[in-house]
C-alpha cells in the first residue's frame, strides 16, 4: 500500500470501511501510519462507510481530527 501511495502520490487516499466490522488500536496504528505518509506527500486520507462501533473507537482515539469520514454520497459527487 505504501509503495502505491509513494508511486502515485494521490491527493486523496480513501479507505472504504464497508467490510470493517471491528476496530482496535492495531487498526488505529495502521491508519496513522498511512496518514503520516499521505500527509507528508501533501495528500488527504478519508474514510467512507464507517460503522457506528468502528467510529466510536476512531473518535475516542482522536483520529477523526486528522482523518475525515465522508458519506458515500459525498464521495460519488466529489463534494469532499
Amino acid at each position: 500500500m505504501d509503495y502505491e501511495i509513494e508511486r502515485h502520490m494521490p491527493k486523496k487516499v480513501i479507505f472504504d470501511f464497508n467490510s470493517v466490522s471491528f476496530m482496535d488500536s492495531a487498526g488505529i496504528g495502521l491508519l496513522l501510519g498511512r496518514y503520516k505518509i499521505v500527509n507528508m506527500l501533501g495528500g488527504e486520507v478519508a474514510l467512507i462507510n464507517v460503522k457506528k462501533s468502528v467510529k466510536k473507537v476512531l473518535d475516542m482515539c482522536g483520529i477523526l481530527k486528522l482523518i475525515h469520514i465522508y458519506d458515500d454520497f459525498d464521495m460519488r459527487f466529489n463534494v469532499c
Binding site: D24, S25, A26, I28, G29, L30, L32, G33, V57, M60, C61
Partner: peptide
C-alpha cells in the same frame, strides 16, 4: 510497529 499506544486508554474508556 505502528502501534497507536491507545490500548489501555481504550480498555479504560470502554
Amino acid at each position: 510497529l505502528e502501534r497507536s499506544g491507545m490500548g489501555f486508554t481504550i480498555m479504560d474508556n470502554f
